[in-house]
Design a protein around this nucleic acid. Structure first.
Lengths: 246, 246
DNA sequence: TCCATGCTTTGATGCAGATCAAGCCGCGCT
DNA sequence: AGCGCGGCTTGATCTGCATCAAAGCATGGA
């Protein structure tokens, strides 16, 4: 299945070495996609699409981080999706965006016009199949996230988020699997709060607490070292290790 | 699209007048499905599938209510899906159930063995397409739900749930669209608490408060009358009316 | 260099919702 | 009737997180 993933991959004949959609595509399919492919850049904080707007493209994240957020009239916001490089954004068959898409960091996306993308999808069973699998993955993630939002304590929420980021990082880089797990937090405290359904003060306090208790080591505000991943996963209150441990 | 919905529909040649999967199926597809179709009944409280178990069927709810729930080691549980009649359960392409499926009331499901279902799906683009659309619908619902869990107050949560149930009911029955909206709560206070990430005491108190404030009228513990749906939707803190109002 | 700005930390206080505890209501059973 | 039980309500109290407030720390620009 890996070869069917809608991914960002090195692509020699592409300005930013990015090939998207389907590594196993037949040549003509790929070329039809290339015709309708284009890149867009955003600065941190910019909104890519507003909830309710027409969204006439699908895309995948090349570099940077985007988030999907829901906002209430009075300004309360909840992040409902976190998109790292190679993640897919878009709603085949849907005209209207159901939530805001926001560039959390500087962001480059690889976009495809939706109409032609959908046509290719309809004619290419394994792309449709792959899209279904990705959507199911997102649904699984959303449901884990619901457990976090509904039932976990602030400390468990923070530990869970750190674990999730560590895991997502590990799946992108060649994972060493030995010793400390090290990564940079790609989110501000405020973005973490929006992810977790907390305030930024609580996020800050709980990170300090985890540091004080030796669960994590911080260098600066963003660089995290996890001496023992099992302890962190235990703090997350989550039996599943997400495949992180053997 | 409606004619492609995976639905429970009246079906004269079926013991419980239920035809599932695809109203526009070609005859032979439908018959292939009929061959692998069977019914299962459960009593309220029974678990249909355990998280982590192999799940070798997909199904749709015929009568009753099922819920998908996540549970932590210490017993905290969060509902992550609520399945009313005609809703689909199952994960095409997945071996293992990602969460418990529980019969919240007495329940009848119409099941299909997964393998043949998947084969038919692969060979039938519009079934695959329909499945993708349904999964996207579930994802949208999950993300609304995340906003509820992460950012809404107890009162808003209750109002939102009542609105959701009212809407789902309206879409099943011929919706009068005039005057009071009336329905029966299909969930215990405890199930509502699991849905909303609250305790059952808080659910009870907030329902009492909405009653006291005239937002709803209760006859008994389950029968709800909503004198003015706009007030309820306003209490839910949700700008979207879910298509309930013109 | 100094200040402005955005991000973060930390402290003091308040409150929404959890927890603990009792009792009520309706129903089925004997 | 009388009883037990599951579901529900209501009260008293506790507490985890929000809120309000202030100050620390980097970075970049004048």
């Amino acid at each position: 299945m890996q070869d069917l993933k809608l991914v960002s991959q090195d692509c020699a004949d592409c300005p930013i070495r990015h090939r998207a959609v389907c590594a196993r595509c037949e040549t003509d399919e790929l070329e039809r996609l290339e015709e309708v492919k284009y890149y867009r850049s955003f600065e941190a904080g910019q909104t890519v699409v507003w909830q309710g707007d027409k969204m006439d493209f699908v895309a995948s994240v090349v570099t940077g981080i985007a988030s999907l957020t829901q906002t209430m009239e009075d300004g309360r916001t909840q992040m409902v999706g976190l998109l790292l490089p190679s993640d897919f954004v878009g709603r085949p068959g849907r005209e209207i965006a159901a939530y805001d898409v926001v560039a959390t960091t500087d962001l480059v996306m690889c976009c495809f016009r939706k109409k032609p993308f959908e046509q290719i999808m309809m004619q290419t069973p394994h792309i449709a199949e792959r899209l279904l699998q990705m959507t199911l993955d997102e649904l699984d993630a959303a449901r884990e996230w619901m457990l976090l939002l509904g039932r976990k304590t602030a400390r468990e929420k923070i530990a869970s988020l750190l674990a999730i980021i560590a895991q997502r990082n590990a799946s992108l880089t060649a994972h060493p699997k030995v010793g400390d797990v090290i990564f940079d937090l790609p989110l501000t405290r405020e973005a973490m709060a929006d992810y977790l359904g907390l305030t930024l003060e609580t996020v800050s306090r709980q990170i300090s607490a985890l540091k004080r208790d030796g669960v994590i080591v911080l260098q600066g505000k963003r660089h995290v070292t996890v001496p023992d991943m099992r302890i962190l996963l235990d703090e997350a209150g989550d039996d599943s290790d997400g495949g992180m441990l053997a």
